[in-house]
Design a binder for these strands. Structure first.
Lengths: 121, 121
DNA sequence: TCATTAAATAACCAATTAGTTAAATAACGT
DNA sequence: ACGTTATTTAACTAATTGGTTATTTAATGA
């Protein structure tokens, strides 16, 4: 699977997003990460494998612990990808503006509706 | 499933991302969307259902066509979520800067290594 | 050496996913 | 009314996912 797909897939699970949130506060061991969840350790290990596979975390060894560390590089890729679409949702604001403008003018019944030029789509 | 999870899940497939890319150029019918892919129509219909379920597209009727339209609102949520982590990958740049700085000073053997204050993690 | 703690692996299960083909629906044009 | 085009639904399959319990590996410390 391509990088972007495996990153999105990894982020599509709330448990994994919670793990990332915790890791954003600093490194943590598997047991520490598992604590807030009502799932078994092997389940956590699997989630960590998914995150590691997407490059979202890296792991090291420290005595019997395997501390996890957030690696945000794939998120950067996601951010770049999603920014392509920013103009789409900002246009929605335009539309909201237009809507609100129309509501206002509608309250003064004498005025005609303005037809603003639309961007593509 | 929560909104963010279903959005990420929908985006985790390259076919669906390609469909969104095409829709960013304007509305399109199912057959038009299906054209670039070597998959059956029912498979495309299913992808569209996933995208619609995540709120990433909306559909209307126009004669026998069911035109699809990009709805970027969920992407906006994704963008907001990912921005939480921006400082993480920007810190990586800091680290790279620090590394490059060290490489440079290492080339002039008289100088000592600087120990910059680190942000959390 | 032996018990303890940390974590991973193995083997299994149920639900979901991404695809298929074949059949059904919906709207159009003649 | 009938054939065509657009799309969906149904029924099935193979692979993947997210979880489990039981077992194993790795490192610590007494």
């Amino acid at each position: 699977m391509d990088r972007l797909s495996s990153t999105f897939a990894a982020l599509a699970d709330p448990t994994r997003r919670a793990i990332l949130a915790k890791l954003s506060l600093g490194e943590a061991s598997v047991t520490e990460l598992a604590k807030p969840f009502a799932i078994s350790m092997p389940a956590v290990t699997k989630h960590l494998k998914v995150l590691e596979g997407a490059g979202l975390i890296s792991r090291s060894r420290e005595a019997q612990f395997r501390p996890c560390k957030l690696e945000a590089a794939p998120m950067k890729e996601v951010s770049r990808w999603i920014e392509q679409y920013r103009w789409c949702w900002e246009e929605s604001f335009d539309r909201l503006d237009a809507y609100l403008a129309e509501v206002q003018t509608a309250e003064k019944p004498g005025k005609k509706k303005k037809k603003k030029a639309r961007k593509r789509h």
